[in-house]
Amino acid sequence: MGSGFQRHNLVHSVVIAEAIAVLHGLQFTLDMGFPKVILESDLRLVVNNIQKLSEDYSETRPFTWDAKNLAKKFQCYRFQFIAREGNGAVHASAVEGIRAERDSFWVEDVPLKALEVADSDRRSRRPP
């Protein structure tokens, strides 16, 4: 239903960048007014840290703590790991965002490359 990209020039850790993306994704979903969310990430560590019931002492702790609190605002939520190969459209959107010179948000739209990848994925999964 929507996606976005925000630049964070001072973030040099992939794990922190993904944790921040999770936070932005949750906030974007709340701002769009959706009561339910399934948040998928290709970084298992971030998903595991959010799902943990015990205390998280990793470098993502401030972000996972905020994500857990934001998630409570939804009627229903789920965090799950998905391999990058399982969601090429998201990766294509991220690459498109990196190329952009400013923050970008798409509502009921996606970058053309992401649409092409999603269409290709859908066709390759069709049963013969």
Rank of each mutant, 00 (worst) to 15 (best):
M1G: 12
G4F: 04
F5N: 01
F5K: 00
Q6M: 12
Q6I: 14
R7S: 15
R7T: 12
H8V: 09
N9I: 10
N9R: 10
N9A: 14
L10M: 10
L10W: 08
L10Q: 13
V11K: 00
H12Y: 11
H12D: 09
S13Y: 03
V14R: 00
V14A: 10
V14G: 00
V14Q: 00
V14H: 00
V15Y: 00
V15S: 02
V15G: 02
A17M: 02
E18N: 05
E18G: 02
A19G: 06
A19M: 08
I20C: 02
I20V: 13
L23K: 06
H24Y: 09
H24N: 08
G25K: 00
G25C: 05
L26I: 05
F28L: 08
F28M: 09
T29Q: 07
T29G: 11
L30C: 11
L30Q: 14
L30H: 11
D31T: 07
D31H: 06
M32P: 01
M32K: 14
G33V: 13
K36H: 12
V37T: 06
V37E: 03
I38N: 12
L39G: 02
E40W: 07
E40C: 14
E40A: 13
S41H: 04
D42Q: 04
L43T: 00
L43H: 01
L43P: 01
R44D: 03
L45P: 00
L45K: 08
V46Q: 00
N49D: 13
N49Q: 11
I50C: 01
K52N: 14
K52R: 15
L53C: 07
L53Q: 14
L53Y: 05
E55C: 13
Y57L: 13
S58K: 05
S58H: 04
S58I: 07
S58Y: 05
E59D: 10
E59R: 06
E59K: 07
E59N: 08
T60S: 00
T60G: 00
R61H: 08
R61N: 08
R61G: 01
P62H: 02
F63T: 01
T64A: 02
D66G: 02
K68Q: 13
K68I: 04
K68H: 05
N69K: 14
A71K: 08
A71T: 07
K72Q: 12
Q75C: 14
C76K: 15
Y77G: 11
Y77A: 09
R78G: 08
F79L: 13
Q80G: 10
I82H: 04
A83K: 11
A83G: 08
A89Y: 02
A89T: 06
V90F: 03
H91M: 07
A92N: 01
S93R: 01
A94K: 00
A94L: 07
V95L: 11
E96Q: 12
E96M: 10
R99Y: 05
R99Q: 13
A100P: 05
A100D: 08
E101Q: 09
R102F: 07
D103G: 06
S104A: 11
S104G: 05
S104C: 13
F105W: 09
W106V: 09
W106F: 12
V107F: 15
V110R: 12
V110P: 05
V110H: 12
P111N: 11
P111M: 09
L112R: 13
K113A: 10
A114N: 04
L115R: 14
E116W: 03
S120E: 15
D121Y: 11
D121C: 15
R123I: 12
S124I: 07
S124Q: 15
R125N: 13
R126P: 04
R126V: 14
P127G: 10
P127D: 11
P128E: 11
